[in-house]
Design a binder for these strands. Structure first.
Lengths: 218, 218
DNA sequence: AACGACCTGCCATGAATGTGGCAGGTCGCC
DNA sequence: GGCGACCTGCCACATTCATGGCAGGTCGTT
């Protein structure tokens, strides 16, 4: 693309903003293409399609957290959060929102410089204090996809999954039939197929097995 | 406790081991109390109960990954992984195993020094390249506890939960009664209670609601 | 074209479920 | 002591379910 990366800055404090601007200016291969001091001002920056956003969380007219999804969808930009908020909730929400890095404001200029460079390079710089919360989350969230753990369990068809959903919310054969727009007799046939595939003999067990096998989510 | 933190090193390469030893030696408030070059040698170190372990993943007679849980359970030590393995699987497994930090071996001496200090201080230093995989995991893993989202839903008793479990695995009234050691008639009464509390009219729906309400896990 | 998998439809029957009411005993709390 | 919540037990009945068999049409693959 271009010889230098295009960077945009979102930070309300003028002092910190100029501080960051200096840091960026000292980097040969990064160019500051715009900055905003509030959520409202960000709209204009979106048109510039920067490669990287430096985002503060605490803005006067809103939270930078809400901005992140928009920044990520505007183009393929990366987002590096630099904030003084180091609490669990903010950190987790920022990452969930799509942030590619999370640095605390007490980071050194060198750390920030390195963070910018690394983020542009596909890395994810995380301040150690913030990472603690992320590790906690990772440990308590077992496998994100406990689904494909059934090598043998036969695959259910879309229709069959729909039917199980109906059953899960308490519908009877008749009700499920109306929901799916088919005859109650046909419901019975689908039931047979499901039971045969899952090797069960009741709706409760079918739902259990389907959930275990990752084919159904409640 | 003691005036200086006690650190143990697990690394098979003698060159790298002495390199790390030098780094540690340069830190005033950290003392190297032992080192191991293989999984087998770690046993002796466990008795020393270090405050922090520096662990390599690739050992001649096993993986450092398997060591982590043991190191964490021996005492309240923290574990900082320093390895050249930067692949997704290794990173995720190390964190899942309980690692408190993950640094790649191409980290500078300063970064390692800082990493040791930060880890002892409760932080979690993560190399940016490794953190990328962790962020991916966090994004695809929704809320780890979507459970307690039922402010109104009536609480089920332990007995009722047990009964729902029986139903989930396909047991009938009669079977569940035997499992719980009660009369089939009593099962019917528990069923009534559950249905009344959850406001449902079938076992499938009861299981669904109980799971939604976080009162039952499949 | 032949085959299997899927979706659809219908009939029939025994077994299981959902729900009503009634009642004794043990707790913990007001 | 009294009250409510829980666990336990029994009876009865209408509804629903589970399961067997049979059959037509549409796909995609062989």
């Amino acid at each position: 693309m271009s010889d230098s990366a295009r960077l945009a800055l979102i930070e309300d404090d003028p002092g910190i903003r100029s501080h960051f601007a200096e840091i960026v200016a000292s980097m040969a291969d990064v160019r500051l293409v715009g900055s905003a001091g509030s959520v409202a001002e960000v709209a204009a920056l979106l048109l510039l399609q920067p490669d990287l956003w430096l985002v503060d969380i605490g803005l006067p007219d809103g939270s930078g957290l809400d901005l992140i999804p928009r920044l990520k969808t505007a183009n393929v930009a990366r987002v590096l959060v630099i904030t003084s908020f180091g609490d669990r909730q903010t950190v987790v929400r920022a990452i969930a929102a799509g942030a590619d890095g999370y640095l605390l404001k007490d980071s050194s200029s060198e750390a920030i410089t390195e963070g910018i460079r690394v983020t542009l390079d596909g890395g994810a710089p995380i301040s150690a204090a913030a990472a603690v919360y992320l590790l906690e989350r990772l440990r308590e969230a077992p496998p994100p996809t406990p689904a494909p753990l059934n090598p043998d369990e036969a695959a259910l068809t879309a229709r069959e999954i729909e039917l199980l959903h109906c059953f899960a919310i308490g519908q009877s054969y008749k009700e499920a039939a109306r929901t799916l727009g088919i005859s109650p007799h046909t419901v019975g046939n689908h039931v047979k197929s499901v039971y045969r595939k899952l090797e069960v003999h009741s709706r409760a067990e079918a739902i259990y097995e389907a959930v275990q096998g990752g084919q159904l989510r409640l």
